[in-house]
């Protein structure tokens, strides 16, 4: 930590993982910019973070599906605190594969929100971080991006594409000393997964994932599987021979 409190922007700030991460930042007395779609929810979170110890919390409304506006979104977040030390991109949706297969417009929207939008936002932020030669861009992708599977390959493709994008961005920003962290959570008990039977040994809390993200940022990690055991699970899923894989229900 430097003398001035760390400046953190969170895009998609009212997602459950983002809330848990923001609370950790607030309790560590960091300054925050919350960017999201629902003004009332952002204001409620901002009050909470102030009580928890954040010396400054700025709130900005943005619709991440409107890709044309993303350059302005990045600019506003950057200038709210006079620069940033950490940007966390935490928005996304979990579409139902059967529905997006049946409705091209839903599929397009899901691809835009889970790939096009965060990729463009990253690039807009990267230009600013690059000039400052410091900082971290952390993006929540998913273990689903590790291999295309019949149960959610559109979501998996968007997240997998985002992983590749971050790999390239990391390459570019290496010289500028800017870290790019690819966060790959497994099952997390959030509102995005509320329709699934949450619980059991594979499910993690948003608080656990937020703690892992914080630790990975601190040690300038590259790819974070959270919780840790997903590294092993996905190593198996990725290397499963195709004849076996095709017989699975994954």
């Amino acid at each position: 930590m430097t003398l001035t409190a760390r400046r953190v922007a969170i895009f998609g700030a009212t997602s459950d993982i983002a809330i848990a991460f923001a609370r950790r930042c607030a309790e560590a007395r960091q300054r925050l910019v919350l960017v999201g779609r629902d003004r009332a929810a952002l204001d409620r979170l901002a009050a909470d973070l102030s009580v928890r110890g954040a010396p400054q919390v700025e709130v900005q409304e943005a619709d991440f599906a409107r890709t044309a506006a993303l350059a302005a979104v990045a600019e506003n977040a950057w200038s709210a605190l006079g620069g940033l030390d950490v940007a966390l991109i935490a928005y996304g949706s979990l579409p139902d594969q059967a529905r997006v297969s049946a409705d091209a417009r839903e599929g397009e929207a899901a691809l835009a929100l889970n790939f096009v939008s965060p990729a463009l936002l990253c690039d807009a932020l990267a230009a600013r971080f690059e000039v400052g030669k410091a900082g971290t861009i952390a993006v929540i992708t998913s273990v689903a991006g590790d291999r295309g599977r019949q149960s959610n390959y559109l979501y998996g493709a968007a997240k997998g594409g985002l992983q590749k994008f971050l790999e390239g961005l990391r390459h570019r920003l290496f010289k500028a000393n800017v870290a790019v962290l690819d966060v790959r959570p497994g099952f997390v008990a959030t509102k995005m997964t509320a329709h699934l039977p949450q619980g059991g040994p594979l499910w993690a809390t948003p608080e656990k994932v937020a703690g892992d993200i914080e630790a990975a940022i601190a040690k300038r990690g590259v790819v974070l599987y959270t919780p840790w055991f997903w590294f092993g699970i996905m190593a198996i899923v990725r290397t499963l021979p195709r004849p076996l894989f095709h017989r699975s229900k994954l």
């Binding site: 409620r44 009050a47 909470d48 009580v51 928890r52």
Partner: peptide
């Protein structure tokens, strides 16, 4: 689970 306000002068906490 949100805190809403805390006044460190009076000790009044709203949550």
């Amino acid at each position: 689970d949100c805190f809403l306000a805390f006044d460190p002068e009076t000790g009044l906490l709203t949550c």
